[in-house]
Design a protein around this nucleic acid. Structure first.
Length: 337
DNA sequence: CGCGTTTGACCTGCGC
DNA sequence: GCGCAGGTCAAACGCG
């Protein structure tokens, strides 16, 4: 008998809602089924939820007859467990909501700091080209912040390589918003939703070598950006115990593009990928979405690491932006030579 | 066997 | 000039 009672409890845990329904039904019309008590002896596999409820109810009733003093106890136990489980579910839901809010707040603060940092860098090093691409999830607040930063930055157009700055002179605010959303979608699809952070780009004035640095949350050894890469070296850099891996683009022979991949010291789940060079071949579709995003902000030839189309400096900026937008890609960041 | 990775050696730029 | 750190090369190795 005790084994039967144990079975009841297990079933109630698996299908709590149905159990509640079954109990309610049992209370309402349980008398009608008392004459089928002989079924209680059958240990069959329960395949139907209603059958399960009925059987549950029948077994309960059988036990009730044999040990009538246990009737309120068994139901109370089940109801108590249901209440506890439901309360726990509610608590977890509430906890999830709070965690989500914390994450959103943290992301907002992070992007805010990133923008301020960009402004400070631009003030300190007016000759150093800086690009900050906001990738992945982007809230409306971040978009607003970006707009404010863009309008207030007052960059010298001829000298600064602005992120979305220069392109904004060609599109209206609605289009910008749409484009930003497009960018987010494109990158999410590119990185399977794992891309969450920031890219930055800089040109070394001395060597004229340019780099795009992408920080992405990625569990694998390297993030899939659509291109084919061959590893040619690995080095442990000073200050970071994580080894830095060196990759060369193998989509086309002689392609000069290289990338360095290194885990972030602060957060091992973040992969910092630095691209360098210009592809001398058309990119795969998967890579082009990313390429157009980054490269449209890097319209000068040495800056177009990711899109060979943008390696052609003869293409005017307006052509670039129309290309990236008309191609349906997510390139919305303006570029400036 | 071909291709990609690993890893130690070598090269190069930079600061002192 | 020297030392250091970052970057690249290439032989050895592993895998399919």
């Amino acid at each position: 008998m005790s084994s039967k009672r144990q079975k009841h409890i297990d079933l109630s845990l698996e299908t709590a809602d149905d159990e509640v329904r079954a109990l309610e039904e049992a209370e309402d019309g349980g008398d009608q089924e008392e004459e089928e008590e002989e079924k209680e002896g059958c240990e069959v596999v329960i395949s139907n939820e209603d059958e399960e409820a009925n059987k549950h109810q029948e077994e309960n009733q059988t036990e009730e007859k044999e040990q009538s003093y246990e009737k309120p106890t068994a139901k109370d136990v089940i109801k108590d467990e249901l209440c506890v489980l439901q309360a726990e579910m509610e608590r977890m839901k509430e906890e999830n909501r709070m965690l989500q809010e914390v994450i959103d707040r943290t992301m907002n603060d992070y992007y805010d700091l990133q923008m301020k940092f960009a402004d400070i860098q631009q003030e300190d090093q007016p000759k150093e080209h800086q690009v900050f691409l906001s990738l992945g999830r982007q809230s409306s607040d971040e978009i607003k912040q970006a707009k404010v930063a863009d309008r207030g930055s007052g960059l010298a157009d001829d000298e600064e390589l602005g992120l979305s700055l220069s392109l904004q002179t060609h599109v209206d605010p609605h289009q910008r918003d749409d484009a930003r959303e497009e960018k987010g979608k494109g990158l999410q699809s590119w990185a399977a939703g794992e891309l969450t952070t920031i890219t930055s780009q800089s040109i070394n004035p001395a060597t004229r070598k340019t780099r795009v640095s992408v920080r992405a949350r990625c569990q694998g050894p390297t993030m899939n950006d659509g291109c084919q890469w061959r590893k040619y070296g690995q080095k442990v850099a000073k200050g970071n115990p994580c080894p830095r891996a060196y990759y060369r683009c193998t989509v086309a022979p002689g392609c000069p593009v290289r990338k360095q991949v290194q885990r972030c010291l602060e957060d091992m789940s973040i992969l910092v990928t630095t691209y360098e060079g210009t592809h001398n071949h058309p990119l795969p579709v998967g890579a082009t979405a990313m390429a157009s995003t980054a490269a449209s902000s890097l319209s000068s030839s040495p800056l177009s690491y990711l899109s060979p189309y943008l390696a052609n400096p003869s293409l005017p900026l307006s052509t670039m932006s129309s290309f990236t937008s008309s191609a349906g890609y997510s390139g919305i960041f303006g570029g400036r030579q």
